[in-house]
Design a protein around this nucleic acid. Structure first.
Lengths: 321, 321
DNA sequence: GTCTAATGTGTAACCCGTTACATATATCAT
DNA sequence: ATGATATATGTAACGGGTTACACATTAGAC
């Protein structure tokens, strides 16, 4: 690979002039510019971003930490982020944390050493102190991680209310909730939304955001409470678990049992029956997060700390009676 | 952030000595080592990998190019790669190419400038010339991209045979195939596998690896050919499309119509009915690809060019009569 | 005691861009 | 004509590591 020196030599100018041509700053005579440009083409010169990073202390790289890219919610987030970033000259380092504080620490350390310009984090477990120490911009996606870190998410509690209300609206008499893991902000919020609507008549069981556990838990729940005719699952995967339980027990969806999920991942319309769900604007949330991160990296001030996005209820077969 | 100079000063030695301690090479007296280590701890020193990269011309970073992380097959691949790499001191840059040659070119260029140490590519469209010019190790995952680039995949044709044969084995009389896009190596291979078994009795339609198109195409196919009682879909997503079509037409799976997919993505066991499928060892394939890539980066010679992995037929509800 | 090899440490060049600063010429106002 | 300003370009320091090379000391062999 040729270097800026080679180009300078080829064009008969100094490296400073070449640099000026490349970065389009400073004064460069038109003829000189031409010479340099020709030299660049002739040598097929591509600037070494490592060298540039070293001096500028920036890498045009950001890290995104998600629990597990294998979980269908996250690819859609990551895609939105990556799309926006590549269009704006940044590359994206992917990190799967498994919600493990040690792995998160490791990633944070590596990112710091590699001078990533900023971080987008989806995490419940991350150590706040570590985040505070990280001296570059960070934004939180889908769930908050610290009160003074910009957060891009929907109002999960309100979403929980809407989902629950929807089940009542279509005529459900007894609505149960399959809850995500305790201690996780979003699953608690969705649960609270459910309680807001159901008041004192709740029937709740935990599905731990896991399909198989949910199916198992739901089977037991339905066996003990055959009166249940509607289920609000804490996310789409758990909703699928509920659907499997229904299938197993030979309960007809939606007529004997209506099901609504949460998130609106692509998967929710792939299944039979298609799932009703509270659909988050996943792609938009993630591009907005990326946009804000870049603003912060560029030293701009951003408007708010809390970016709340609208969700929509999508009614599909699983609640269409 | 403190630099190696700060550490040197703190420890009362030269930067060379600090470097030796950090990299554990060259001679360092035990006492000196202790002093340096203490200084490192005291200053919370973390070496700047950019500076190191500049000199060593390596970045401890690799790029993985996939068509679209949003397609459920790829997160599993990417996860395997990322897991293996982070454990071995590498970070992973994610690239979504959308099978677009221009985007691939852009990514290749950026990766080169950023001195990524190697590339893992999943692509049908990538420009062979560009790949050849890229002067660092590359491996191909899931599908080949060039005859002298190491490839990690299964025998798709044989997989197609097994899938088709399975449908016959369970008693299907008329087996159709929903084919992936033309020109794509893997979908052609699976198709050929189907033909191998079916000979002269084929019934094929294209689903373009897309769920909705597949559902639509399948509905038409089944309406014209009600005698079809088994479908081999070119991947799991298309198999889901077939299942939807069956649902729409009120055809019972598996008894009136057996369905088998291909890939064995997690999704295939999430649905009702659960999908039979030709399961690829996705995680293993990807970690092996990552392992080989690292070997190449380290300048080792690897054993072969063609890494063929075993697949397994998983029989689930959709073909369990 | 002398020679060689192993051990220990520092100096400075190097990786490849960016940019502050110096210098020089051209342009313009007065 | 004179000084101020805009234009044009080069030199060299800098970012933060790594390492070749030089030099000094110590250990071991005979």
């Amino acid at each position: 690979m040729s270097t800026i020196k080679d180009v300078a030599q080829e064009a008969g100018v100094s490296v400073a002039t070449v640099s000026r041509v490349i970065n389009q700053n400073g004064y460069v005579n038109e003829d000189t510019r031409k010479k340099v440009e020709n030299a660049i083409i002739k040598l097929n010169y591509q600037p070494n971003s490592i060298a540039r990073s070293l001096y500028k202390k920036e890498s045009k790289t950001i890290g995104i930490i998600v629990p597990d890219i294998t979980n269908p919610f996250f690819p859609e987030l990551v895609r939105g982020v990556e799309d926006y970033l590549i269009r704006n000259g940044f590359t994206t380092i992917l990190c799967n944390s498994d919600e493990d504080a040690d792995k998160e620490r490791l990633y944070l350390e590596v990112m710091k050493q590699k001078y990533v310009d900023g971080l987008i984090i989806v995490s419940n477990t991350i150590n706040e102190q570590l985040v505070q120490q990280f001296d570059r911009p960070i934004v939180a996606l889908d769930r908050s991680i610290h009160k003074n870190i910009p957060t891009f998410a929907i109002d999960n509690r309100e979403g929980g209310r809407r989902a629950t209300q929807h089940l009542l609206d279509i005529g459900c008499q007894k609505v149960a909730h399959i809850k995500g893991p305790d201690q996780i902000e979003n699953s608690e919020a969705r649960y609270k939304g459910y309680l807001d609507v159901i008041n004192n008549n709740e029937l709740v069981v935990s599905g731990h955001y896991d399909l198989k556990k949910t199916a198992q838990a739901t089977i037991e729940l339905l066996q003990h409470h055959p009166e249940i005719d509607g289920v609000f699952a804490g996310n789409d995967i758990m909703a699928l678990g509920v659907a499997k339980a229904a299938d197993y027990l030979n309960i007809k969806v939606p007529n004997e049992l209506a099901i609504i999920g949460f998130d609106g991942i692509n998967l929710s319309e792939m299944t039979s029956p298609e799932l009703s769900t509270i659909s988050q604007p996943i792609y938009e949330m993630s591009t907005e997060a990326a946009r804000a991160l870049i603003s912060l990296i560029e030293g701009k001030v951003i408007e708010k700390i809390d970016y709340e996005f609208p969700f929509t209820l999508i009614q599909r077969q699983s609640t269409k009676r």
